[in-house]
Structures are given as structure tokens and as C-alpha cells.
Amino acid sequence: MEALAISNYDNIFKRYDLVSEGSGQGIMATAKDADLQKIMECVIEGETDDILGLVDEALTKLDPMVIINDALIKGMNEVSRLWDEGTYYLPQVILASDAMLAGIELCEKKMGKSMEKKGIVVTHTAEGDIHDLGQKIVNALLRANGYEVIDLGKDVPVDTVVNAVKQYKPVMVTGTALMTTTMTAFEKISNRLSAAGLEIPFVCGGGAVSEEYVTGYKLGVFGKDASQAPGMAADAVNGGTWQELREKYNG
């Protein structure tokens, strides 16, 4: 099994020219059996076409939750690592996330219900700002770690964010802004949320935003890199307050 896995990685390298593109260590994850291994590789390679057939076949033998956790999410976690070390670029992260979500959808159909989520997170990109790539990575990594993401998209008015928090009761809300003209919406959201007694962590990130700015208003926790989002959500699920998150991740 192990040997099979390793020869497959060679193929991945050749196919996508990863050896010459990145400085990192390449793909290191391995799954528990051959079916799971193939599915995991589909996620890592962003094979949105092949993954459906493979998941379908695996579902005849394996429990859907095993496929989700030990292949789909495992593959996406590997993608997250490859992104962190600079081996993967944005297109690969988008494709891997597509493949993972397509696979999860099939498994959920088989279960007849959605997989149990660890918690809900509302994400958005600030009003007037269409720079939503950071948010997309945040969404992909949160989903890969078992959170339900309410994706409000880009250019989202303050009202919409506040209403979504009221409606979905998330453990955490995130904001992305890449422009100095748009990040000021975060402070307004923070004021509106605390006035309504909705004191959840409001993790803000994106090119223009600095730790100094974000920690200048209530609820604000600065997110430097998208890969911090799942850990922050886990802390929030475990009852971490915005003050505790700020203490842990900022300063």
C-alpha cells in the first residue's frame, strides 16, 4: 500500500510540474487504504471529474463519514499544508476545495443528512470590496475542518452581516478587506454586534488590515493567515471569548 502511494506521488509531481514550481517538500499525506488513498489524491490534485466515480464506488464498501474524514478532509488538509509552504498556488486550492465539496455532497446524500458540523462560521468580504480570494481560502479551510460556512460573499453591507449573525448564531464571524477605504466597515459591524449583545469573535484579515487596526475595536481579532481560521473556530466552539482569542493569536 505504502509503495503504491509513493509511486503515485511521483506522477503528481510530473503531471503538475510541482517539483520545479515550489520549494517545499511535496505531498506527504497517506490514507488508510487504497480506495481512500485514491480519493484523497483526487482532492489533492483537484480532480473534480474523477472524484465522483471514486466516491460512489467507495460508498458501496465504506461508511460515508470515514470517506469524508479519512479521504476528503484529509486531502484538503494536505492542500492547506502545501499552500502554507508555498508549493501550491491559488488555482490548486480552489480546485481542491471544489473536489472536496463535491465528494462531501455525495456522502451526505448517502447518509440522508448533512454531516455533523463542529459549528457555524459566517464569512464575508467588506462592503465596497471585491477582493474575495482571502475569504475563499478561509471558506475552503474551514469546510475542510468540518465547519459549516455561511458564505455571504463579497461587497457585503454591514446590515447583511449583522442580520446573518442574528439568524445563524455562528460561533465566529470573519471579515476580509484589502482596501483602506473598505476596512472601516469592520468597526461598524463590531459596534452593531456588541450593541445587540452578540459578543462573538470577529476575526478580520486581508491585505490592508493590520493587527493594530483590528484590535482597536471590540470583538476584533486579527487574522494574519487563512490557515489560522480553523484553529480559531475550534477555540470559539470550545467557549473561547473574543478577548481570549485576541490574547492567543495577537499581540
Partner: peptide, 9 residues
């Protein structure tokens, strides 16, 4: 920008 595409692209 390499924030968006790879050197190969």
C-alpha cells in the same frame, strides 16, 4: 500576480 497564478501559468 503570483498571489493569484503560479509561475507556470
Amino acid at each position: 500576480s503570483l498571489d493569484l497564478v503560479s509561475p507556470k501559468i
